[in-house]
Simulated assay, not measured.
Amino acid sequence: MRVLIAEDHHILARTIATGLRREAIAVDLAGSGDVAERMCLLNAYDIIVLDRDLPVMSGDEVCLRLRAIEDPPRILMLTAAGSVEDRVAGLDLGADDYLAKPFDFAELLARIRALSRRVPTPPLMILRHGGIELDRGRREVRIEGRPVELSPKEFAVLQLLMEARGEAVTHRVLLDRAWDENMDSRTSAVRATVSRLRGKLGRSDAISMDDGKGYRLC
C-alpha cells in the first residue's frame, strides 16, 4: 500500500509517516495542497491522508480536484474542527472518511486499513503459494504451517510477490509500492530484502530474478 500524507504540520506528518512505515506502508509527504495534487497526478496512491487546512490550496479544493481524475486515491480527511457539520461538509466534498484532530495513531491506522479494503473486488485476506501462507489481516506468514518472523519491508515485498501469482514484479514496482519516492532506484535495498526473504523462506531458489523482468515466486 502507498499513502500520501498531505499535512503542513511537519512534526505531525513525520510522526504519522514513521508509524505507517513501521507497518510496511510506503509513505510520501506533501506540505501544501498544490504539491499534494501534483503528487497524486504523478503517482498511484491508494490513500491520501488530507488535512483540510493546507497552505496554497486548501484540502477541500484538493479533494474536489482529485474526485475529478480517473481512479483517484481514497481520501481520509483530517481537521481540527470536529463538529458534526464539519464532518458532513468534508464527506460531501467527496472524502471517504473523516478524522478530527487530535487523534490516536491506532485509530488512524485502523481507518487507513479499512479504506484500503474498499475496492471493487475485496482482496483475499489469506494468500497461498506452495507452502507459504500470508495473512494480510494478522500480518503473519507461515511456511508449511510454521510461523516465520518477517520485518515490515520483507512482509511488504512478499505480499507483492504473492499478489502477482507467479508473474514477475519489477524492481521499480517493488520500490514504488514497498518503499517511497525518496528511495533511489539504484539502491540495493530490494536485492538485499529479497536475499533475506529467501533465507527465511528456507530456499535459495524460492524467489527468482528474471533479467529485465523482475522478481517472481517459484
Rank of each mutant, 00 (worst) to 15 (best):
E37L: 15
E37G: 00
M39A: 13
L41K: 14
Y45H: 04
D46V: 06
I48P: 03
L50V: 07
R52T: 12
D53Q: 11
L54Q: 04
P55I: 11
M57C: 04
S58E: 04
D60M: 04
D60P: 00
V62A: 01
V62E: 00
V62C: 01
L64Y: 05
L64V: 15
R67G: 12
R67V: 05
A68Y: 06
A68P: 02
I69L: 13
I69W: 01
D71G: 07
D71R: 15
P72Y: 08
P72I: 10
R74P: 03
I75M: 14
L76D: 07
L76S: 11
M77V: 07
L78F: 15
L78D: 05
T79G: 05
T79W: 02
A80L: 09
A81P: 01
S83T: 13
S83V: 01
S83W: 01
V84W: 02
V84M: 04
D86C: 06
R87L: 00
A89R: 15
A89I: 11
G90E: 12
D92L: 13
L93H: 04
G94M: 14
G94L: 13
G94K: 15
A95L: 10
A95N: 09
D96V: 06
D97F: 09
L99G: 05
L99A: 05
A100D: 06
A100Q: 05
P102M: 04
F103I: 01
F103W: 06
F105M: 13
A106C: 03
E107Q: 10
L108Q: 11
L109I: 15
A110E: 11
R111Y: 03
I112E: 00
R113V: 05
A114C: 09
L115G: 00
S116H: 12
R117K: 13
R118T: 12
P122S: 07
P122D: 03
P123D: 07
P123C: 00
L124A: 13
L124S: 11
L124R: 14
M125Q: 12
M125K: 15
M125C: 09
